[in-house]
Design a binder for these strands. Structure first.
Length: 240
DNA sequence: CGAATTTGACCTGCGC
DNA sequence: GCGCAGGTCAAATTCG
């Protein structure tokens, strides 16, 4: 019996064989009840472990936030507060040390349909697409946009689906708009200062947690450790 | 018909 | 110098 296909856990419960022997039937029914009880408790254990892991992931996310929002921990080349679209840098690399990362802002947007090839990100500005390229580290194409006010406005943006999570669009803004937003629709909300409502903050957190969980699931060491932990727990239970 | 998008070619920077 | 990868250009195509 596979409890969780994504984790590849197979509890391998011995099949129950019915016989014609009447006294044997009662024994078998008792045995089945025992096995059902065992299974239920195993499920509880797995569920508990899942909750523990999820709490751990949440804690890691909080620690990460502290690092990103504490200005004293910033170094040269680290993320500047965003301004291209009223947004800021967030999770992941805050830029290499090769060049100052001023005016470079990375934003994650959640999309409902990962198969949707339309990577339009509404951020209140009007953009003109001038190129598209498939990059080495990501099979989904990266789209290049210039602000439609170019060359008056030097801002560019790159939009690419996250390699970690197809539901996430990674938007990289370069430069600073020297004009007002064209539309009155909400700007992209940011981790540090622009998440206006708690609802949007929740959605943002959900996306980040999901991305991190996906990364953990893809990590063979993590899966191996998890399988070890669960199997040792089951063995301990059987020995009782 | 004009604006926006697509897409192959070209340019540039970097590592070897 | 060469090859690779990312970024940009511009002609062709699509769309409203």
């Amino acid at each position: 019996m596979v409890l969780d296909a994504s984790l590849g856990i197979d509890l391998n419960v011995t099949p129950f064989h019915k016989t014609d022997d009447t006294p044997q039937i009662n024994d078998d029914i008792n045995q089945m009840s025992l096995e059902n009880k065992k299974l239920r408790e195993m499920l509880t254990i797995v569920w508990d472990k899942n909750n523990t892991l999820q709490n751990h992931v949440n804690k890691l996310m909080q620690d990460n936030d502290v690092l990103l929002t504490n200005p004293n921990k910033r170094k040269f080349g680290e993320c500047e507060e965003g301004n291209a679209s009223g947004s800021t840098e967030n999770l992941h690399d805050c830029g290499s040390l090769k060049r100052p990362n001023e005016g470079i802002t990375r934003v994650y947007r959640r999309i409902d349909d990962p198969s949707d090839k339309n990577m339009v990100v509404k951020d209140g500005y009007h953009w003109r697409k001038y190129g598209q390229k498939v990059t080495r580290d990501n099979p989904s194409p990266r789209a290049y946009y210039k602000c439609s006010f170019a060359p008056f406005c030097p801002v560019k943006k790159k939009v690419q689906r996250s390699v970690e999570d197809a539901h996430l669009l990674v938007v990289i803004y370069e430069g600073e708009h020297n004009h007002e937003s064209l539309e009155k629709e909400p700007e992209i909300h940011t981790r540090n200062r622009c998440l206006n409502s708690s609802m949007e903050m929740l959605k943002f957190d959900e996306a980040l947690v999901e991305q991190m969980a996906n990364s953990l699931k893809r990590n063979p060491d993590f899966i191996e450790d998890l399988a070890d932990a669960i199997s040792s727990n089951i063995l301990e239970y059987d020995l009782l």
